[in-house]
């Protein structure tokens, strides 16, 4: 067993004894910018656009659904089980499947659908980021396998940035096995540094703020 060997070597090299406490850490460096909600919304939309994502600011749930319908445009779509999506009515659109709770079934569906629809637990205004915590409501694959991703986000969920997120969720692992921060469409620049979108994840990202 290499465990004891490695830990012993570490302790000997550092001159420490087993169980010795380290000096206390300084408080984490969290700096939350005070940004009012209108600026947060505007910042979020502007950053997503700058990353070549599409955005839509919906005044009502119905507007949000209409926009989503125009993006889906008759293609097959899969929606997460987030209650907010049901409230919106987007799950009732023709061609939208939802309510899947089986891992294998969901994966196959996501692999064949053109559009994945999710909500987001939070959004980060200063980077244009969607934050999704994996749960019974939000699966990992819906925002990942289909070539297009639509996220419908209530405006109150938009935080100023990463620091605020980490102050609200100091221990993300207590909530979920997977928290993902999504900042724009999937991209690569691995060949001659030329930017190409949609390499493994969705190349098309639509953020609808309600």
């Amino acid at each position: 067993m290499s465990r004891e060997l490695i830990l012993d070597k570490v302790r000997i090299a550092l001159g420490r004894t087993k169980g010795q406490q380290p000096p206390p850490l300084p408080p984490a460096r969290i700096r939350i910018a005070e940004v009012n909600i209108d600026f947060r919304v505007a910042g979020m939309l502007q950053k997503v656009e700058a990353l070549a994502g599409k955005t839509f600011l919906a005044g009502t749930l119905a507007e949000a659904v209409n926009y989503a319908a125009s993006v889906i445009d008759g293609r097959e779509a899969v929606a997460s089980n987030a209650p907010f999506l049901r409230e919106c009515g987007v799950t009732a659109l023709p061609g939208v499947r939802t309510g899947v709770t089986d891992r294998v079934e969901l994966r196959e569906l996501c692999a064949s659908c053109a559009v994945g629809i999710t909500s987001a637990d939070y959004a980060l205004a200063d980077t244009g980021t969607l934050v999704i915590l994996s749960s019974g409501h939000e699966a990992r694959m819906i925002s990942l396998l289909p070539p297009a991703h639509i996220a419908i986000v209530p405006r109150g969920r938009i935080l100023s940035g990463l620091d605020e997120l980490l102050s609200i969720l100091p221990f993300p692992a207590e909530q979920t096995s997977s928290m993902v921060l999504i900042t724009g469409p999937s991209r690569t620049a691995d060949i001659e540094q030329i930017l190409v979108r949609g390499v493994h994840g969705p190349g098309e990202v639509h953020v609808i703020v309600v």
Partner: peptide, 27 residues
């Protein structure tokens, strides 16, 4: 790469839990 955040940042801990629909069974 000059990005404030890369496109994806994943924070992963343990296998899929209780209600979660997907994710690995072993971690």
């Amino acid at each position: 790469t000059g990005q404030p955040l890369t496109v994806y940042t994943s924070f992963l801990s343990g296998p899929r839990r209780g209600e979660e629909i997907d994710g690995p069974g072993e971690f």
